[in-house]
Computed example of a mutant assay.
Amino acid sequence: MTLTAPPRLLLVHAHPDDESLWTGGTIARYAASGVHVTVVTCTLGEEGEIIPPALQQLAADAADQLGGYRVAELRAACTALGVTDHRFLGGIGRWRDSGMAGVAANDHPRAFANGSFDEQVAQLSEIIAAVKPQVVVTYDDFGGYGHPDHIQAHRITTAAAADVDRVFHAVTSRAATEAGVAALAEMADLPWRLPAEGELPVTDDAAITTTIDISDHLVAKLRALRAHSTQVSVWQDGTGGASYALSNGIAQPVVQAEYYVLAKGPAEGAETDLFGGLD
């Protein structure tokens, strides 16, 4: 890196666990190399489905305490990834998990996806002005898989990061995912079903501009995923194989890289480094 200012990376995520699922290896890699990493989380993930039976009463339709529980999970995940600068958009609890499109949670008065766009952009702009990141990461305009909160995170980040050197969208590689699923099919005792064709969200590799090698940081990523135990289950076979599943019980591969599409800024040098070529 030849930056004249300290490298600063800011990631905008919708819910606790998204930072680990989408960008955990990238966060761990850059934090370990001395980059100042800031993670912004937009909601507490109150509408998440809960995996452990013993914690079912935390759910939104019961005690409605899942958001507070997930704050602790997020703190543990950030520790695993080496993040020391975490912020909630607008302060903790300002915006609520909207749930998937078409559910009653969309109409909550604090639902992030239907909240004041101008207020949210102002809140994120304030963070960006304070942190002064050269690189910002969020989702694409489909939010990766269509979740309203992910789409809103994309929208406000696009507006707030107008003066940032580079903006990337975190995506998943079709080729890496298919190869990873094929490897899972050869593993004995995998506790979940394999995904059907087209069941996992992927991006065609021709559209991917940036590949970040996270092979040296998979331990940190897996530790962070384990921290989100209400939302994510992690399995390892003892010989280096690993998989995780959400509440749907679909096995997903843990691949050796994380993938991005450059949405704004110079492309030269960005093929394998979010900061590559910046000066």
Rank of each mutant, 00 (worst) to 15 (best):
M1A: 14
L3G: 07
L9F: 09
L10I: 11
A14L: 05
S20N: 04
T26R: 09
H36P: 01
V37W: 02
T41H: 10
C42I: 04
G45I: 09
G45S: 10
G48A: 14
P52G: 06
D61K: 13
D64C: 07
L66K: 04
Y69C: 14
L74V: 07
R75L: 09
R75W: 03
G82K: 06
D85C: 10
D85V: 11
S98W: 02
V103A: 01
A104N: 05
P109E: 12
R110F: 03
F112S: 10
N114H: 12
G115W: 01
A122W: 08
L124S: 01
V131D: 14
P133R: 02
T138Q: 03
T138H: 09
Y139T: 00
Y145T: 12
G146A: 05
I151N: 08
I151A: 00
A153G: 13
I156Y: 07
D163G: 12
V167E: 04
F168D: 14
S173W: 12
A175S: 15
G180Q: 04
A183F: 02
A185T: 07
M187R: 14
P195N: 06
A196G: 15
A196Y: 12
E199H: 11
V202Q: 13
I208V: 15
T209I: 00
D216S: 09
A224G: 10
R226C: 07
G241K: 08
Y244F: 15
Y244D: 15
G249E: 07
G249V: 07
I250D: 02
I250R: 12
Q252S: 11
V254P: 04
V255H: 05
V255G: 03
E258H: 08
A263G: 15
A267D: 07
D273Y: 06
L278W: 04
D279V: 13
